[in-house]
Amino acid sequence: MKILVPIKRVVDYTVKVRVKPDGSGVDLNNVKMSMNPFDEIGVEEAIRLKERGIASEVVVVSLGSGACQETIRTALAMGADRGVLVETDLELQPLGIARLLKALVLKEQPQLVILGKQAIDDDSNQTGQMLAGLLNWPQGTFASKLEIADGRATVTREVDGGLETLELPLPAVITTDLRLNEPRYTTLPNIMKAKRRPLDVLQVADLPAEAVPSIKTLKVQPPQPRKPGIRVSSVEELVRKLREEAKVI
């Protein structure tokens, strides 16, 4: 069984994000970029399936600039077998990505696609669902547990107020939640080996899919900075300030 794991290169979670002064987007100059943490969980899950003998090949794919090769190498160092980069300078949005991925799925013929449930930059939480829709495949989103047996996937999902367990026939689309696994720390020999693993670079034009953005970004602005709090000396003062200054009671 082949597993396809799409991964996204995002601003690292430890970075304090800055917005460009002209409001056209996020400033990516000299900013540490890394793999979307939910996608890392997807890669880990796919590798574990391979280690358990359930999967035979793990292919990671990323869409974006040439710099995404570095992100793909990270996944290869974790243990993925092969990487594909679809190179493009277009602003990629969930629907466009889902269309490109569908084209790739038809080309690669995986039995399972594992995506992060969302990317930590735009937090869209749409690509996995859209891909399943376009492929007309069943989907198990927000998986916190995944079992594969007899051509079926059993997915435990975290929903409000409890756990829901679904059984899906393969092929299927799975999106990962935070608690699915803890991604491994890569060993140095694997980092070295990853440099020698195959990484194909395709152009968007090579795929029979439209990735033109359907949404236009008008403006990006940082959130208003929070005003510092003040310390009050008594309950009376607190009540007075809430009434007179904050006007909330």
């Binding site: 690292d12 979670y13 430890t14 540490k32 890394s34 720390y185």
Partner: peptide, 18 residues
């Protein structure tokens, strides 16, 4: 701790800009 060092340059994983 290792991941934070790799990503943030400090073991707490707090932003370099801070």
């Amino acid at each position: 701790a290792f991941r934070n060092l790799e990503r943030a340059g400090n073991p707490w994983g707090l932003a370099q800009d801070n």
